[in-house]
Nucleic acid binder design. Structure first.
Lengths: 357, 357
DNA sequence: GGGTTTCATGCAATCGTTTGCATGATCTTA
DNA sequence: TAAGATCATGCAAACGATTGCATGAAACCC
């Protein structure tokens, strides 16, 4: 009787995971396989399975398979303290820079069986509560794409003993490892290109100076010009990395004096904002003024005129950040280091030789 | 003595969360407050706190605050079966449609203290293992932005008894609640606009017909034309929702016979691909041919010419989907319903009166 | 003022895994 | 062949929070 009942159950559950709600635990598997729960636990753990005989291994795996067993991560997390979960903070997920970064992070995480909490931290003041919740959730680590200069968050993370990595924006104090793009090189590429075209009066629409990339790129530009014994004609700081801010800054720049021959923008959106302002002022790109961007976001090759810009390896930025984080989580931590990736110049139609005087 | 010792401890830990690593448990709080753990648990639970006297409440809260206590979600999850966690599957996070949807989801989740696992499911075949891992992770629910027609995933989700909501793409069998945009109305807006401009020969670059939106928009277009006693001049199906596929489809359409006066595209990217193919063929937009898109993704107002398109309330799509999911999780489930949101026509420069014969 | 209700809190079991230690079986070696 | 080494498995105690039930005290009622 009992045997036939079991058979019937098997028929009703032909494949795994077909039960409507499956509270099938390790205990059920142990029972079905006729072994102790600890044996099941070991048999199903990649590290411990070598302790188990092939015979038992087979039986356990078959039983687990048949019952559709999935270990309860919450229980495992409670026991081991590891949740197989990381958190990511981004300032604005709709900014085209971040999706590829997230993609890279997620790819790395998925390959290791990790899940990624993505949080969109609109207001910097909200970052701390988010991190506290992540602490409660016992994430194994966090990746911050939100760091500002002297960010109190870096402090918080360090104090709380979270393992963390910064991406896209570095920590100047070097307390946290980071993966960034080489802003100096990026600006050198842009400047060399413009100087090569014959430009003399080069201006800069700088990013917010409380964000590392804002400062880094401005310094990079100044250095690159210095290498040519030049100085920026003018530098205007944008309120934010947005089209509106770029337009406003460009207007301000035009009002401040004679128009530059070329303007290097901290960011593609800012460059597009500059387009808006220039068009409004009746200036043509690149005939009257050359413009460069930064990031090579999607579609900037479709705008009018197609934007000359700096391409960043965003996906790899994310990937590398995640890999670093996992190394740290697994204990084989490198000394807190900064990885600098190489950007690349993409020449399109927004830059050209300066108009003859 | 004891009292002064406590004071010293307070000084050493001036604020909460300043300990480097804080394995402070509910037991520690109970001890510090001189009560039982169960009392602490109740005092710190919004629902149960009414059971506790004001006096004890104060003491417990003070102790929890002082020690920097954060309940361990893993333990809580194990006991209650609720993880305060949801999963989201998107087909391609770098597609500009999805970030605003994610933003909406995340906003709703954050407001409820939930975290969101975001997974980028490149290959549909990978969706199932991802869902299985989410099952193991014991997420409280999932939001799928990946549904294809007759998606086996919908089956899987239903069978596994997961609470789930679809977003952006509906389930035609109606087994799962969904939040979508009104494709019929969208196509009616586009068609009425073109017909109003005087177009007669209207063609369609259709989306993949294994994706609900691909079919829905094609049917919507045909219906809208029928309302004007017209038929599509020609319909070409795109391989995917991408610029390359759009260009290829447009080339195919031009080869198939006389050029249409206007082409309604299933998607902005496809429309931009059509731009590429048309430019290559020496046709001008909108002078020779009008083009409409769908989604109003960022920057399509900056391309040449600015694209006339349909704006979808993407952020609200995500928000509503999350709200529905939470309602279901909390048990006050509506009957599996589909919420249809209203799109809106954005007229720019890619549509105009047809050229005189 | 004795009996009953109400209230605040304590007790202890439980959720599902993991893992150090114990145990017994098998194998090795002199 | 006895003593030790090796191996596979079982036992049971965690991990930290939640919650039904028990308990004792205070409040209430007639």
């Amino acid at each position: 009787m009992a045997a036939s009942l079991v058979t019937i159950v098997c028929i009703n559950q032909p494949m795994s995971t077909s039960s409507p709600s499956s509270p099938v635990t390790i205990r059920d598997v142990a029972h079905a396989a006729g072994v102790h729960v600890s044996t099941v636990s070991r048999a199903l753990s990649p590290e411990k399975r070598s302790l188990i005989s092939d015979e038992v291994l087979r039986v356990v795996e078959e039983a687990a398979q048949r019952l559709g067993y999935r270990p309860n991560r919450a229980a495992s997390a409670l026991r081991t303290g590891r949740t197989h979960t990381i958190g990511v903070l981004v300032p604005d997920i709709t900014n085209a820079v971040f999706p590829p970064i997230l993609q890279g992070i997620e790819a790395s995480a998925a390959a290791r069986g990790y899940f990624v909490f993505v949080t969109n931290v609109v207001d910097p003041a909200l970052a701390r509560p988010v991190l506290e919740r992540m602490l409660a959730q016992r994430v194994d680590g966090v990746i911050l794409a939100t760091a500002t200069r002297d960010d109190p968050l870096v402090d918080f993370v360090a104090k709380a003993g979270m393992t963390a990595v910064l991406v896209n924006r570095a920590d100047e104090t070097g307390r946290l490892p980071a993966v960034v793009s080489d802003d100096r090189l990026a600006m050198k590429l842009a400047v060399d290109h413009l100087v090569g075209l014959g430009h003399k009066r080069i201006a800069h629409l700088a990013g917010p100076q409380n964000i590392p990339t804002g400062v880094g790129r401005r310094l990079g530009l100044e250095q690159a010009l210095r290498d040519h014994r030049m100085k920026p004609l003018r530098v205007v700081e944008c309120e934010s990395y947005s089209r509106e801010a770029g337009a406003a800054a460009m207007r301000q720049m035009l009002e401040a004096g004679p128009a530059p021959q070329a303007v290097v923008c901290c960011n593609d959106l800012v460059a597009l904002g500059a387009y808006d302002a220039l068009r409004q002022a009746g200036l043509r790109v690149p005939k009257d003024i050359s413009v460069t961007g930064h990031n090579d976001m999607p579609l900037v090759d479709m705008v009018d005129p197609p934007l000359t810009t700096i391409r960043l390896p965003h996906r790899e930025l994310g990937w590398r950040a995640a890999e670093m984080l996992f190394e740290e989580i697994d204990g084989r931590a490198m000394s807190a280091s900064t990885v600098v990736l190489r950007p690349e110049l993409v020449v399109r139609k927004s830059t050209g030789a300066p108009a003859a005087r």
